[in-house]
Computed example of a mutant assay.
Amino acid sequence: MTGQRTFRPIEILMVEDNPGDVRLTREALKGGKVWNEIHVVADGVAALDFLRQKAPYEAAPRPDLVLLDLNLPKKDGREVLASMKADPLLKAIPVVILTTSQAEEDVVRAYNLNCNCYVTKPVDFEQFTRIVQAIEQFWLTIVTLPPHPGS
């Protein structure tokens, strides 16, 4: 074996203000095959503070993946995405937009802001669970995520 991988949980930051969607996502990921740690913040300002390790998130880990809702209080997901992709320290973190919006303008704008993929949340529980598990399967087992700076 040429490289040696240190096994650690995959760090996921979920930026979501709907407690029901957070609960469903946690449940869907709990049964998955990948050891993950999910961190949740409920607004865009908290998301950027978490990502930049500002108070009260000084000890926050760097996420391997961000699940980002668009419709958030304080600072919406579009603003969070734009800030992330403009920041040299954050722009390599993959961002999955996970939102109820099916508006074409939201899809186009998210991709223009360099999101990695756009997924519309289904309203049905079983479909929602399948979608989250498909995200996990693709992003956490198939895709090679960028290394953390300094690793």
Rank of each mutant, 00 (worst) to 15 (best):
T100L: 09
H39T: 05
V123L: 12
A59I: 02
A103Y: 13
C117F: 02
D76T: 01
E37F: 11
L113H: 11
F50C: 11
F125T: 06
Y118P: 04
R52D: 05
K30D: 14
V143H: 14
P94D: 08
G31R: 11
Q127N: 12
V143F: 13
E58Y: 09
D49R: 14
T129N: 13
V108C: 07
V96G: 01
G77N: 07
C115K: 04
V66C: 12
Q127S: 03
F50N: 03
D87G: 06
F128I: 05
L98K: 02
V132P: 02
K74T: 02
T144M: 11
E58R: 10
Q133M: 05
Q102A: 15
A134L: 08
A86N: 15
E105Q: 14
P61R: 03
L68Y: 06
W35D: 14
L65Q: 03
L89K: 15
T129M: 11
T141E: 11
L90I: 05
L48M: 12
E105F: 14
V143I: 15
V80Y: 01
Q102L: 13
K121F: 02
P61Y: 04
I97F: 10
D124Q: 09
V40T: 15
V41H: 03
V123A: 15
T129Y: 09
L81G: 01
V45L: 01
K75S: 05
I142F: 02
Q127H: 08
D124L: 11
F125E: 10
L113G: 02
I142Y: 07
Y111N: 08
E136G: 05
I97E: 08
Q53E: 09
K85R: 14
E37M: 12
R62G: 01
L51G: 07
V123E: 15
D43R: 01
V40K: 02
T144S: 15
R78W: 11
I38E: 02
L81H: 01
D43Y: 03
T129C: 12
L113P: 03
D43N: 08
A47E: 08
P63Q: 07
K121L: 11
D43K: 04
L51R: 08
Q133K: 10
